[in-house]
Design a binder for these strands. Structure first.
Length: 719
RNA sequence: GGGCGGUUAGCUCAGUGGUAGAGCAUCUCUUUGACGUAGAGAGGGUCAUAGGUUCAAAUCCUAUACCGCCCACCA
């Protein structure tokens, strides 16, 4: 027999095998042999260029690679399309921090052009790292089609999409309340806000005859509306619109009584004053009653002229001084120093959110429009569409299926509460808004106007605007390409459930409008990986399992099957290193099964003689057929964990424990020897195929010893 | 305040109507020509609790308890 080490060595094998796959060209569907009329296609959720590969990426890559390899072996024209995301705010803030640390310079010190050069350099390096790491997972991605959310092709798609929506009135510019991050000097979307618990002081202030409570006295200068519930019996003497004179921070003011049923009578005194410019809830009340909006705080977090003697002070510094003044004027009734509330922060590395009313670009989710007669959404022709309606319709009608299905409710709930999406950001790294101004004129287009004097809007687009186009911008849209024709809509969108709002919903929004079809037929949501204490993995907690470290110790195949083995869709996964270790044993077991069989036969093409089958032979062949059926059905049904368990169980407890033991005696029997070899050969070959999607490296390596004419990765999955 | 998920072996998790499973841990045996990074075997579970449906429930229904997550304009 050939000289094969008794222990499987993943390190030696993996890079060699991956290169072999690359050389074969089979990652690219155009190179796959056979007729292949059916297509199967997944776009990789693009990892952020700033990041390094974490265990969540590893899980995503494994799930998708299993689906891809299975379908490739099953005769589909299979495309898995890779790419990375420029993650605008996250990337910019990271580079800004690095530059400030090294040179004490801000982006404004460097200027837009120079700063962007720096960001691009960083993004490029970071990109190379994460791509190398992705390859180590064994991902069979078609690198010839790799895309970047900020490259020229995607930029064309973004501009085209923007223009189409602008022309249809679905994108508008307007003054609205936004989440302003004074630290990064940009707006942030609702979904990018992270709420943090904080203990602070709650001040009870005397506001004329009332007592109002506030945690933010520095916003109170402009308060001239006092709001209470219309049914609050304590305040029946006051009427809506009534005006009263009272002494306030900087002197006497005239306050107006407003009755609004959004007021919680139980809270404090049941009375509050409002700050429509700087608080979302107050803003809603003010809009309902058509009240005045006054800005108190500027974009840097400093108080405006309305603050009188405090003008120009930063709110942080102003607060104690304001309290002092209120104290001296006798306007403070009491202070609750242990008031627990939540503050909004920018989760992408910025500061505390200060709501502001600003001129921004928005996508109108409620504006009605008509779909073309060619629409592939089965949306009733009699009805006017809105983005919101289409988002709901695609899932409700079953055009798009979500696994596990309870996430449907989450999805609907989010849509029902969806407000217009603020898409402009005041950062520099990203797609610049394709709108130019000249005096009062506005031009939206793919190219800048030819005449001089036009100036482009300096803002960039929310990173999810470009991500929302991902399923088709990667296929060449807006050009009419062969890839678009073949591979859209995509088969499955596989991602973590934490990203359903950010991304999944936005892809549906963009695709249903721009293409009038669905972006994908199935959404498969995986869970979040947590440590054994169910904590989210994060650098600050120091509980990260580094997939690359694990690969070095146990091998990629062990990590892959460990990740999938006990992972039901949508469930969080506390990953224990012991499981990976156990799966390393499994890879080794398979290796030695192959070694045993290889030491007994060189010929893997011999036909099995049905007449000579022993009971043990019949048993293993029938179990093999059963396992094949079970694994196939489970992969088709997206129960990858059950498929993996079935493959594991068959290999270890049917093939190794029972049949290989039985075969030892049969091999000694001259009557049975030849046929036993044929059964062993057949069983090994099929087992390798069954395990290949889960453990591609070790199976391909063993396969290479079987004198087969082509790679295991394109061998036929025999159902 | 709404919504969702979880509670199964010492630990971490699979299992969704029909005799309870995996990895790790524990114990015993095996240095036999596939495998000592191992194998064979063993112990260990009233499947959170209480009701209900069913011939049959870890699995379906109802309630309770505890844990966790998401959403929300409580000053």
């Amino acid at each position: 027999m050939k000289e094969i080490s008794s222990a499987y060595n993943p390190k030696e094998t993996e890079s060699k095998i991956y290169q072999k796959w690359l050389d074969s060209g089979y990652f690219n569907p155009d190179n796959l042999p056979g007729a292949r009329t059916k297509t199967y296609n997944i776009v990789l959720p693009p990892p952020n260029v700033t990041g390094i590969l974490h265990i969540g990426h590893a899980l995503m890559l494994v799930i998708q690679d299993i689906l891809i390899r299975y379908h490739r072996m099953s005769g589909f024209k299979t495309l898995w399309l890779p790419g990375t995301d420029h993650a605008a705010i996250a990337t910019q803030s990271k580079v800004e921090a690095m530059i400030y640390k090294a040179e004490e310079k801000t982006r404004h010190d460097l200027g837009r052009e120079e700063f962007l050069k720096r960001v691009e350099k960083y993004a490029q390096e970071s990109h190379d790292t994460i791509i190398e790491q992705t390859k180590r997972m064994g991902a069979s991605l078609d690198w010839s089609r790799e895309a970047y959310t900020l490259d020229p092709d995607r930029n064309l798609a973004v501009k085209t999409a923007f223009k189409k929506m602008y022309d249809a009135g679905l994108i508008y510019r307007g003054n609205r309340m936004v989440n302003w991050d004074p630290k990064m000097q940009t707006t942030v979307s609702d979904d990018e806000i992270e709420w943090k618990d904080e203990i602070t002081s709650l001040y009870y202030l005397k506001y004329g005859p009332f007592t109002i409570a506030t945690a933010r006295p520095e916003t109170k200068f402009g308060d001239k509306y006092v709001v209470m519930h219309p049914e609050d019996k304590r305040y029946t003497q006051y009427t809506h619109g009534q005006q009263i004179e009272l002494e306030w921070i900087n002197g006497p003011v005239k306050a107006t009584i407003i009755k609004d049923d959004s007021i919680d009578m139980e809270f404090g005194t049941g009375v509050m004053t409002i700050t429509p410019w700087h608080d979302a809830a107050d803003n809603e009340i003010a809009k309902r009653h058509n009240l005045d909006f006054e800005q108190i705080i500027d974009q840097k977090g400093k108080l405006l002229a309305i603050a009188g003697e405090f003008t120009g002070l930063h709110i942080k510094k102003a607060r104690p001084l304001i309290i002092e003044k209120l104290q001296s004027k006798g306007l403070i009734e009491k202070i609750d120093e242990k008031y627990a509330h939540r503050i909004a922060t920018n989760s992408r590395g910025g500061g505390i959110i200060e709501p502001q009313i600003m001129k921004q670009w928005f996508i109108d989710v409620n504006k009605e429009f008509e779909l073309s007669p060619e629409q592939k959404l089965n949306f009733p022709a009699s009805e006017k569409a809105t983005l919101k309606k289409l988002m709901r319709h695609t899932v409700e009608s079953g055009l798009i299926k979500i696994y596990p299905d309870h996430f449907q409710k989450t999805y609907f709930h989010w849509i029902d509460n969806l407000k217009d999406w603020c898409i402009s950001r005041q950062i520099w790294y990203g797609h610049q808004i394709p709108v130019w101004y000249k005096g009062d004129q506005v031009h939206c287009g793919i190219e800048a106007p030819k005449e001089s004097g036009w100036e482009q809007d300096p803002d960039t687009l929310d990173t999810w605007f470009s991500s929302g186009l991902w399923t088709f911008s990667t296929l060449g849209w807006p050009n009419k390409t062969k890839d678009m024709e073949l591979f859209h809509p995509t088969s499955v969108l596989e991602t973590g459930y934490d990203i359903i709002f950010f991304w999944v919903a936005r892809m549906i929004l963009m695709t249903t409008y721009l293409l009038e079809e669905i972006p994908f037929k199935t959404i498969y949501l995986h869970g979040l990986i947590r440590d054994k204490d169910k904590q989210k993995m994060s650098k600050s907690k120091g509980n990260i399992i580094d997939p690359l470290g694990v690969i070095d110790t146990y091998g990629t195949d062990a990590l892959r099957i460990a990740l999938i083995f006990s992972t039901a869709a949508g469930n969080d996964i506390p990953l224990a290193e012991e499981k990976i270790k156990g799966m390393k044993h499994f890879a080794n077991k398979l290796w030695n099964i192959a070694r045993f069989i290889l030491s007994n036969t060189d010929d893997f093409e011999t036909k099995i003689d049905q007449a000579k089958l022993t009971e043990a032979d019949k048993e293993i062949l029938s179990k093999l057929e059963l396992a094949t059926k079970e694994i196939t059905e489970n992969i088709e049904g997206l129960r990858l964990n059950e498929a993996a368990q079935a493959a594991y169980h068959f290999t270890w407890h049917e093939l190794a424990d029972i049949y290989i033991e039985a075969s030892k005696a049969q091999l000694q029997d001259p009557e049975l020897s030849a046929n036993t070899k044929a059964v062993l050969a057949k069983t090994l070959k099929t087992t390798l195929k069954l395990l290949h999607p889960f453990m591609p490296f070790v199976t391909e390596e063993i396969w290479s010893n079987l004198n087969q004419k082509d790679l295991l990765m394109i061998s036929e999955w025999e159902k």
